[in-house]
């Protein structure tokens, strides 16, 4: 589904990613953890080409997105992103947020898009908020709308960039619940997160990035119960003690 080969990314003289290799299979849930500034969000943003990779290849759904000839807009719709800050469109109703992509990118009629939009809002538990504006919602509700907006494109994979980091603690659960449901339904997901509980419960594979490199990867059981890498042990010690 996603194949990343030797991905490098520099911002000026600062090399953030120093050769990342990653393969995500269809239906897999991959959680990426690591200290802040380790480059984990940058990996996601490169997959969506919100950041231009400095070197390396990224193949999403069979298309080499580092090839300038690739139509990035279609790739983005197949590998869409859910942001830490939600980034809903504040001047549109919740429903309109969800239908814009399907209408403009997928060419659905507004009636079809609305039907799909309402179904998806019901799925994330917000059927009654369709006509509201984003600033009338709580953070958790906003993020669930953002997930519905991503799902409306029927993407092959959803990239989650710290989806619960901007939420009040009591609102984290409702968003994770929606994500767990997606995982159970077989959605391919790449999740950058600090929610170790979520990673442990939902991930098929956990990846630890530090210093711009993948330091450790494996199934969550071994990963959390028996970390071998000293940097991972150190990181988990800090996060879990917290």
């Amino acid at each position: 589904m996603i194949r990343i080969e030797n991905l490098h990314k520099s911002f000026g003289s600062l090399e953030v990613l120093k050769g990342i290799d990653l393969h995500v299979r269809p239906g897999e849930v991959v959680c990426i953890i690591g200290p802040s500034g380790s480059g984990k969000s940058t990996v996601l943003r490169c997959i969506n080409r919100l950041e231009e990779p400095t070197a390396g290849r990224i193949i999403v759904d069979g298309k080499d997105i580092t090839d300038p000839k690739t139509n990035m807009n279609l790739v983005r719709a197949e590998a869409t992103m859910v942001f830490q800050q939600f980034n809903l469109f504040p001047h549109m109703t919740v429903l309109h947020n969800v239908t814009l992509g399907p209408v403009k990118v997928r060419g659905l009629s507004s009636a079809e898009a609305e039907e799909r939009g309402r179904e998806l809002l019901a799925k994330v538990g917000l059927a009654d908020k369709a006509e509201n504006y984003p600033d009338q919602l709580s953070g958790g509700q906003k993020q669930r709308v953002a997930i519905a907006r991503a799902l409306a494109l029927q993407p092959k994979v959803i990239l989650f960039d710290e989806p619960t980091s901007a939420l009040d603690p009591e609102l984290v659960g409702e968003v994770l619940e929606v994500m767990k449901q997606l995982a159970r339904e077989g959605m391919t997901m790449v999740v950058v997160t600090h929610e170790m509980g979520f990673a442990k419960e939902v991930a098929d594979r956990v990846i630890f990035i530090d210093g711009g490199r993948i330091q450790e990867e494996g199934p969550p059981e071994a990963f959390f119960s028996n970390p071998e890498n000293p940097r991972l042990r150190d990181f988990l010690g800090k996060v879990i003690a917290h």
Partner: peptide, 24 residues
């Protein structure tokens, strides 16, 4: 983030400008 969100759902730069950025 508004431009990024527009691009991330597959809109082009000019579509994002027209539907997302300009009205705001």
């Amino acid at each position: 983030g508004q431009m990024e969100a527009g691009r991330s759902i597959g809109l082009t730069r000019s579509q994002t400008m027209r539907y997302i950025i300009w009205p705001q």
